[in-house]
């Protein structure tokens, strides 16, 4: 039985001053993994210059690269330009949509995007009151709906969700409780549990915990680089 080997990392936060360094740590990745997934916060300030550094670091790797953006990548309102730079470098950038990648005969479906916050069941914001609050929660709800839809539509042997924000609380352990609503939303997990998936990867919570699970039993991994303490982790899915 062969396995699908998924290398994953988030929050690489690259800038001009560290150009070339992350790339070095990707040496030999083709021997260790079949695909690389990058869970957002690729830059520090979301400038085009930083986006170009990221594109160069991820360019021409021996395996396909799928990425989503994170909140930092939106900071300078250059998210579309950064995504184009990445796409020009051959990176598949998901924005609440999906891609199917052929890996060694297995069709791997990846669904995802930035995600957003709002908090976790029983302790979360709702679409009530001020326009600003409603917009905040609505943004997350629409994202969750598009992921659920994409997961249902996709025709693949394996399905992985790639997000920046967290779908569950467990992988936030280590972060201050007070900021949980800004780190993720249970609406994301609910959507994925409804449609089904094999694995959810996220970043954003630098002080969080690597391993967790949704209420529906889908494995969740926080792959933020400071959490992994490594250039990337590798998750192997048994081939069906």
């Amino acid at each position: 039985m062969t396995e699908l080997r998924i290398a994953a990392v988030g929050d690489i936060h690259l800038g001009e001053d560290v150009r070339g360094q992350y790339r070095k740590s990707l040496d030999g990745i083709g021997d260790r993994a079949d695909i690389l997934m990058v869970a957002g916060d690729l830059t520090r300030h979301g400038t085009l210059e930083e986006g170009r550094v990221v594109a160069d670091e991820l360019r021409d790797l021996p395996i396909p690269v799928v990425a989503v953006l994170g909140n930092h990548d939106y900071h300078s309102d250059m998210q579309h330009e950064i995504a184009s730079e990445l796409r020009d470098a051959g990176v598949i950038v998901l924005n609440d949509d999906s891609a199917v990648i052929e890996c060694d005969g297995t069709r791997l479906g990846v669904v995802g995007g930035k995600g957003f916050g709002g908090g976790f069941a029983g302790k979360c914001a709702s679409e009530f009151g001020e326009r600003e609050t409603k917009n905040f929660v609505r943004h997350t709800r629409l994202i969750a709906e598009s992921w659920q839809h994409a997961l249902k539509e996709i025709d693949a042997d394996r399905r992985v969700v790639l997000s920046h924000y967290s779908p569950i609380k467990e992988t936030l352990e280590g972060e201050p409780l007070e900021i949980y609503p800004f780190l993720g939303s249970y609406l994301l997990a609910e959507a994925v549990d409804t449609a089904g998936a094999d694995l959810i990867l996220h970043g954003h919570a630098h002080r969080g915990t690597e391993k967790g699970m949704t209420s529906g039993g889908i494995r969740v991994r926080n792959v933020a680089l400071p959490v992994l303490g490594a250039a990337y982790a590798v998750y192997c899915l048994a081939d069906e």
């Binding site: 260790r32 494995r219 680089l225 400071p226 992994l228 250039a231 990337y232 982790a233 192997c236």
Partner: peptide, 14 residues
Amino acid sequence: VVEVGRPGEVEHLD
């Protein structure tokens, strides 16, 4: 300052 020059662990999910 965390140096992250090397790949991390491999986990088998089954």
